[in-house]
Each structure stands twice: as structure tokens, then as C-alpha cells.
Write a protein that binds this DNA or RNA. Structure first.
Length: 596
RNA sequence: GCGCCCUUAGCUCAGUUGGAUAGAGCAACAGCCUUCUAAGCUGUGGGUCGGUGGUUCGAAUCCACCAGGGCGCGCCA
């Protein structure tokens, strides 16, 4: 049993046996055959639904097939017992040697345990964060950053060729507003006598982004340009003189700041795509032309939303995309009534650009407030690529930050933090990352600051890292005691694992054996949080085993008088380390050597 | 009004893509340190899986309707 995924290995055996009982089963039946962990340990280690799935096609009773299957499987060396059960399950109890194979596989694979070829090298683009470059990252961006980063790692682990991408929204009204705000800081740096309100009255749409983080931008502009961007006596000059320059500097500085924040979070992305560059290159017009050539564009008037007509509603002709042909509810505007492009058309161009770079699969991580946008964007990707590329969107629900059981108010004035940087400073990067992954992304979440820094079981980060630290502590103690002697940890794979037969040891091995299967399932479902829950369970199994050694000295890992048993147990501990690290690597969380 | 997401133990949440008697943590109670980290472990109690129908060998999971919560709904990005 050299295969990493013991469930896949046993499934292959089940299929072979089933093929002998019922030859020529249709492929779609075979595909439905599963071997999965038993829910109840009393049923054994694994259960297969093979007999139930095959029964109808074979025209036989499930229980009958299950009985024959059980007889055949029981004869295999890796299987200790196979029994038909319930409506037609075959329950399997594996020979301990099969579980020992899992330990060897984990030791051999190390961080690569759970790697698979599921993705077959297919290119996938994961786009996440993509916060507007108008200020430092705040907590609202954080969940998407962590989920996207972990999902990218997860997909890479199962064999996709992953590109991590950030889309810079540097073309729209938001960055113009940013430029106006940065220009105010520049005038202040010059020593203007205007008040903020006087200046705000001059700004189209009003002065936004009043945060102090733009002071540095104003100072940088002064250092680079002196008074050249302003009028006499530090008064505002016409925008034509400064807008483009200020915008460029401000966006560049905001992006630098965001990248610092991302680095603090341990997120590094491969590609940063600029919306402005795409627009300048004519990509939007090309995208619209492509849709037009496919007959998917028309000039039309949209119905007002039913039951909720805006006060200023007025029927106007617009350029519309036939997204209803691809499953959307209504056709969507590509151009505003004044003829300029909507954000949607820029986004179509961007996604077409991504697809054109050779990604048949695009995954975007969005905030839940963009949920209404998913159908039209997916429709557009399908339409413009002729089905060659597919868009999937993972929505992340709101995170509420809690302190002392109360939500922390996101007020800039109240001094309660809003930035990602502050959050990381308070609870640490590992806690931020892990806790963000302890919920399904589409479920709302409370981030409990008190829990995040607690050093108890209720803090999942601590609990998992503590398990790893305990493992390392044992291995260090073993090295000091000289028990590891020959070849150190590397030689533990050659230990006589047959000596691992305690129930708690088997439970731990069973858990590790489930990891490769779980990794694949999590990747297919785009649900990195499953890894976090697995690690918590694995840590729990290990802590349990540890305490067995407290209650019964013969179950301690290190027993000076039993070198063979000691080496076998150290092999199990080292394998646990490998699996914990493999999982933590997906989440981007540090495996701590010690937590003192 | 329409669309999407959510509803599981007192609280916060898992539930291996339809499997067997629905699981964790917290909170409550009772235990375990001359021993590798007690920052841990063990045990007890706690459920109409929001409701009603349907699909089938089998439903917390799929479908329909209903109730409650969240998000969104032409020229914001």
C-alpha cells in the first residue's frame, strides 16, 4: 500500500472485486461507488456503497451483492474484516499494516502529504483581495484575502497550475476622488490657508477619503514636485495641471501600502492587473466588439425593477448585453445612457483578458455584497469565450469583530481599529488566518478577539499549534535522550510500526489516512475551511493520545527500556508533524516549535 | 416585489456533495498532574436538523411551498 490516499487504494480493490462479481458495469455506475470513512467506529474503518449502487444495474438485491463483495474483500491482506451491513453497505476493517502504510506515506511525503494529480496541471486563475487602491486594507478585505490565498494553495496542492491575481481598480471615479483627497493633503503640505470645508466645496462629488494616511502622499507630492502642481499661494490649480500626476502617485503609494499589508498577512500574489492599463489598451472596446460580433448586444430600454421603482426612474436607451441567454435574470447594460462604458464592461474586458492568458478556469473571491453580480459576470465569461472559460465565484460574508461579547464599532474617530494592520498587531497573523477559515466562507462570521488570543482549546489556532509544539517537544526530548540515535528522525520510517496497536494510536492513524481524500474534496468544493476543521480534529486525536501516556506510563511515547516501541511511536509523532504541517501550509499558518 | 445566501444542542458552529443511532467547542456538573508542556485529557446531561409536503432502498443534505434573518436590485465601483 504505497498510495498516499488509502481510501483511493481500497476503492480500487472494491472496484476490482465488484468487477468480478458483476462484469461490465456501466462507467456511470462505477463512478458512483464510494469508499468513505465510517461515521461510527463500531462499523469499522470504512464503508462502501458499491452493492447498493450496482444493484439496480445488475438486477440483483443489494444485500446479496454486499455479501459476495464482503467475502471477496475479506480475503485481501490489507483488510481484516469485511461485513455486509444495513441496506447493502460493506463495512471494512483494515489490517493495522494498512494504517502503518499511512504513517510511512506521511513520513515519506512530509509537506507533500495529500498532494494529488486531481487538477492535472490545468491552469486556474484565482483573483482575490482586489481592494480599491484608495486606502489601507481593512477587516472587510481580510477574509477574502485569506480565503483566496488558502484556496489557491489548496488547488495547487491537488495539482492545478495556480496563478494568484489582484485586480487594481484604478480607472474609475473612486481613484479620481482619491486624487482630489490626496491633492488636499498636498495643498496642506504647501501651507495652504484654505479650510478643509472650503476645499471640499470645490471637489466634484465632495471630498472623500479624509483619513490621515494620505498626508504622506501629500508630502511625497511636495517633495517630488515642489509647488508646481498648485496655483499661487498654495491655492488649487486647474485639475488638468495635476489630476493625472496626483492620481498616479496616490495609487502607486496606496498599492505599496496594500502590498505591505498583504505581506503582513503572508499573502503574495503573482499578477497585479491594472484596470486603467486595460482600458488604455482598448481592451474594453475589443470586448464589446467581440460580443457584438456574436450578436449578443443590442440597444434597448430596461424595465424598472419590479415593486421598487427608483424615484428618479426614467426610461433611457442603453447598450445591453443579452446575459439572459446565459442564465441571468435581465439583460445588463454595457454603456451608460451618455455612451460611456459601465464598470461591467470593464470587468468583462478584464475577465476576457484573463481567459485569453490561457485560464479555462477563473475563480474570483468576492464580498457577499457583490452576490447580485455573479450571474451576469459568469454569463459574460461564458459568452465572450464561447464556453472556453468558466467563471466560479466564491462569496465571502461579512465579518463582525467582537470584543467582550460586543461588536467592535468600525468608527475611524472612536479609535477602534479598522485596518488589517491593527488586527494583525493585536492577535497575530496566524490567528487571523486560521480563524478566518473556521467558517464556510458564505456564512456570516463573528471574529472574537478574546478567543483569538486565548490559549485554550476554544481557540482553534492555539489548539492546533499546541499539538504541533507537543509533537516537536517529544521529538526533541527523544533526540536528547539519544533514542533517535541511528539516522535521527529520517530513519524513523524504518521503525517496526507493527508495535503501534493501541486504540488511540489507530485513531490517530485513521485520521491521518483521511487527509488526502479530504484535501481533494475540499479543493473540488472550493472550501479551504475543511482543512482547518480537519486539523482541529487531528490535534484532538493527538492530545488524546498524549494524555493516554499520562494515565498509563506504558503508553508514553518515549520509554527508555523499550527502544523498538519508542521508535515506532516516534514515527507516529513525526508523521503527525508531517500531516499538521501539510495542512497548516495550505492555510498559511506557522507550525510553532514551542509555545512557551 | 424579484434574485442570491442562511436557519442544526442554551450559545458559536461542523456535518466527508444522498448513507447507518446527527457531531465538536463554549456554558453546567463530576473526575485526571512525584511522568514527554494540565495552555491538556476523560465522563455526564442537553436535538421535532425553522415548518409542511414530495423524490427513493435511504434526506440535515435534492425538489416545491411557507415562516424568519442577511445581502443585492439601470447610468456605484
Amino acid at each position: 500500500m504505497t498510495q498516499q490516499d488509502i481510501f483511493a487504494a481500497i476503492r480500487a480493490e472494491v472496484l476490482a472485486a465488484l468487477g468480478r462479481i458483476i462484469p461490465e458495469l456501466p462507467a456511470e455506475i462505477v463512478a458512483r461507488v464510494e469508499v468513505q470513512p465510517a461515521r461510527d467506529a463500531a462499523h469499522g474503518d470504512m464503508a462502501s456503497n458499491a452493492a447498493m449502487v450496482a444493484a439496480r444495474a445488475a438486477g440483483r438485491k443489494p444485500a446479496e451483492i454486499a455479501a459476495e463483495l464482503a467475502t471477496a474483500l475479506a480475503a485481501l491482506p490489507a483488510i481484516d474484516a469485511a461485513t455486509p451491513a444495513g441496506p447493502g453497505f460493506v463495512n471494512l476493517r483494515l489490517a493495522p499494516t494498512a494504517w502503518h502504510g499511512v504513517v510511512r506515506a506521511a513520513l515519506a511525503a512530509g509537506n507533500g502529504f495529500g498532494d494529488s494529480t486531481l487538477g492535472a496541471g490545468q491552469a486556474v486563475n484565482v483573483e482575490y483581495v482586489s481592494a480599491n487602491p484608495t486606502g489601507p486594507m481593512h477587516i472587510g478585505h481580510c477574509r477574502g484575502a485569506v480565503v483566496g490565498d488558502a484556496l489557491a494553495a489548496l488547488l495547487a496542492k491537488v495539482g492545478f497550475a495556480v496563478t494568484r491575481e489582484y485586480y487594481i481598480n484604478d480607472a474609475g471615479a473612486q481613484v479620481a476622488a482619491l486624487a482630489w483627497a490626496a491633492y488636499w493633503r498636498y495643498l496642506q503640505a504647501l501651507g495652504t490657508t484654505m479650510t478643509e470645508e472650503e476645499y471640499a466645496a470645490l471637489v466634484p462629488g465632495g471630498l472623500q477619503y479624509r483619513g490621515e494616511y494620505l498626508i504622506a502622499v501629500g508630502e511625497a507630492l511636495l517633495a517630488a514636485h515642489g509647488p508646481a502642481l498648485a496655483g499661487p499661494d498654495a491655492t488649487p490649480a486647474p485639475p488638468a495641471l495635476w489630476l493625472a500626476t496626483v492620481r498616479e502617485t496616490a495609487v502607486a503609494m496606496m498599492m505599496a501600502s496594500i502590498r505591505e499589508d498583504l505581506a503582513l498577512l503572508g499573502v503574495t500574489q503573482d499578477v497585479f492587473s491594472s484596470e486603467r492599463a486595460l482600458v488604455a489598451a482598448g481592451a474594453v472596446d475589443r470586448a464589446i466588439a467581440t460580443l457584438d460580433a456574436k450578436g449578443l448586444i443590442y440597444e434597448g430600454v430596461l424595465e424598472p425593477p419590479r415593486g421598487k421603482t427608483p424615484d428618479d426612474w426614467e426610461a433611457r436607451p442603453q447598450t445591453l448585453f443579452r446575459s439572459t441567454q446565459f442564465g441571468d435574470d435581465v439583460d445588463r447594460p454595457l454603456r451608460k445612457s451618455d455612451g460611456s462604458n459601465t464598470y461591467f464592461s470593464n470587468d468583462i474586458a478584464y475577465h476576457a483578458d484573463k481567459a485569453g492568458r490561457g485560464f479555462p478556469l477563473l475563480i474570483d473571491i468576492w464580498g457577499a455584497d457583490h452576490g447580485g453580480y455573479v450571474a451576469r459576470m459568469a454569463a459574460a465569461v461564458t459568452a465572450i469565450t464561447g464556453g472556453a472559460a468558466k467563471l466560479e465565484v466564491v462569496l465571502c460574508q461579512i465579518v463582525r469583530v467582537m470584543r467582550g461579547g460586543e461588536p467592535v464599532r468600525m468608527s475611524k474617530r472612536a479609535g477602534s481599529y479598522v485596518t488589517l494592520r491593527d488586527l494583525i498587531e493585536e492577535v497575530g497573523r496566524d490567528a487571523v488566518r486560521f480563524i478566518m477559515l473556521t467558517r464556510k466562507s458564505d456564512a456570516q462570521m463573528d471574529f472574537d478577539l478574546d478567543q483569538a488570543v486565548a490559549q485554550t482549546r476554544e481557540n482553534p489556532v492555539f489548539y492546533v499549534q499546541y499539538a504541533h509544539a507537543r509533537c516537536r517537544s517529544v521529538l526533541r526530548a527523544a533526540a536528547e535522550a539519544g533514542v533517535l540515535a541511528d539516522g535521527g528522525e529520517a530513519a524513523l520510517a524504518e521503525a517496526d510500526l507493527a508495535l503501534l496497536d493501541d486504540a488511540a494510536e489507530l485513531a490517530l492513524m485513521r485520521r491521518m489516512g483521511a487527509f488526502p481524500r479530504l484535501v481533494e474534496a475540499a479543493a473540488l468544493a472550493r472550501e479551504p475551511h475543511r482543512i482547518a476543521f480537519f486539523l482541529y480534529d487531528l490535534a484532538s486525536d493527538f492530545h488524546m493520545l498524549w494524555n493516554r501516556g499520562k494515565e498509563d506510563a506504558t503508553l508514553r511515547f518515549i520509554r527508555a527500556e523499550q527502544p523498538q516501541a519508542t521508535r515506532a511511536r516516534l514515527a507516529l509523532v513525526a508523521a503527525t508533524v508531517a500531516v499538521l504541517r501539510a495542512g497548516l501550509a495550505v492555510l498559511g499558518v506557522t507550525p510553532m516549535e514551542e509555545l512557551r
